[in-house]
Each structure stands twice: as structure tokens, then as C-alpha cells.
């Protein structure tokens, strides 16, 4: 499947097969979750990041089914580059209506970056001015967990983490994803 047809598929799923909801509701709900975490964990932003990642991971495990059902993708991705394309043009498109740019491939094609010029989760957000948040908190870290969990369910073990974020004063919001290995063993079937 070519890149353009993936883009078209993403558009189609978004337009025709996705129930939609007010984006600001999601933005504010996510904001409430992060703010609550920061309170619960006493401003330990490193822990907050971990928690967001964990929550994202749990989501990813279930989200993949929704993705496969709606996108109706028959074929497995031939290689990791295809996977990246699908994540960006179909995955992010059908859930968040954005298509982050794929960039910075490593020479072995096992690592790439997603550049977000739009991030609905971070709309209206300004990190606390406490001298710590901007150097420690990855506000959208849940997304990393989602990718990790979703890919694990399709036999890929990856690491996903942010390397820059405009909320931290950087020029871009960039997530780095690297393939650790393909999972050879069969995953146990989900009970649901």
C-alpha cells in the first residue's frame, strides 16, 4: 500500500467511519488528568511522566483493536517504515485528526521521529512556572504509551519517548520511536 493511499485511507476513516466529539472537551479532560496527576504525585514530574506513559500503554492495548476494526487494514506492514507511515497517516488521523510528520530515520531504519506541529492535547497549555516543570514534564507523554501498547499488540516491541516539546520552550514537539525487536512469540488472545 502506497503512502498516498494510506493518507487517503486515513481521511476516509476519519470522515466516514469515525464518530466525532468536541476537541476542546478532550483537551480539557486530558488537562484535568495531567493537573490531577501533578497534584497527586506532589510535583514529581518524573513520576507523572511514568504514570502518563502507563496510562497510555493501557489505552494502546485496547486502542489497536478499534484501529484495526475501523481501518480494515488487511495486510501487515511490510517493514518498519510502513509501520511509521500507518501510525502517522491512519492512526493519528483517525483518533486525533492530525498527521505528524515522519522524519529523522536512522540508517538501520529502526528509529524515526514524529514531529507534531499540531497537538490537540496541549492546546491552551502553559507549564507551571516552578522552575521544574519545563525541564522535567513531558505533558503529552500519554501518546508515547499509546504507541508502545498498540504496537506491542501487533508484535512490535518499541520504545517511544519525547525529545522536545514546544511547551518546554523548544522549537518543535518531537517523539522518537525506536524498534527494539519484533515479538516472535504468539501473543495470548485477548479475552474480550
Amino acid at each position: 500500500m502506497s503512502s498516498t493511499s494510506r493518507a487517503r485511507l486515513g481521511e476516509e476513516v476519519w470522515k466516514l467511519r469515525t464518530d466525532k466529539i468536541n476537541a476542546e472537551l478532550v483537551t480539557l479532560t486530558y488537562g484535568s488528568v495531567v493537573a490531577q496527576l501533578c497534584k497527586d504525585l506532589d510535583g514529581d514530574y518524573v513520576e507523572v511522566n511514568k504514570q502518563l506513559d502507563k496510562m497510555g500503554y493501557n489505552i494502546g492495548l485496547r486502542l489497536i483493536e478499534d484501529f484495526l476494526a475501523k481501518s480494515n487494514m488487511q495486510q501487515k506492514c511490510a517493514n518498519f517504515r510502513d509501520t511509521a507511515d500507518v501510525i502517522s497517516k491512519v492512526g493519528f488521523k483517525m483518533f486525533l485528526n492530525i498527521t505528524p510528520t515522519i522524519a529523522n530515520w536512522s540508517s538501520d531504519n529502526k528509529q524515526f521521529s514524529l514531529l507534531f506541529d499540531e497537538n490537540p492535547l496541549a492546546d491552551f497549555v502553559e507549564l507551571p512556572d516552578d522552575g521544574k516543570a519545563q525541564s522535567e514534564l513531558w505533558y503529552s507523554n500519554m501518546l508515547c504509551g499509546v504507541i508502545r501498547g498498540a504496537l506491542e499488540m501487533v508484535q512490535m516491541s518499541v520504545d517511544a519517548h519525547f525529545v522536545s516539546d514546544v511547551l518546554r520552550g523548544n522549537d518543535t514537539t518531537e517523539m522518537r520511536i525506536n524498534l527494539i525487536r519484533y515479538i516472535e512469540d504468539e501473543m495470548p488472545q485477548d479475552d474480550e
Binding site: 469515525t18 466529539i21 489505552i59 478499534d66 483518533f95 490537540p120 500519554m142
Partner: peptide
């Protein structure tokens, strides 16, 4: 940033559902 920029923006309902479900779990 203009306050009306995301006035008509939409996301998928399932994105909200997943987020909400995890919020409950936590």
C-alpha cells in the same frame, strides 16, 4: 493564540472514551 481557533475542532469519540476510561481506572 486566538480563543476561537479550536472552536469547531473535532476528535474521535473513541479517543475521548479511551481517555475517560483510563481516567476512571486511575
Amino acid at each position: 493564540r486566538h480563543l476561537n481557533r479550536t472552536k469547531t475542532s473535532e476528535l474521535s469519540k473513541s479517543a475521548f472514551a479511551f481517555l475517560f476510561g483510563e481516567m476512571v481506572q486511575y
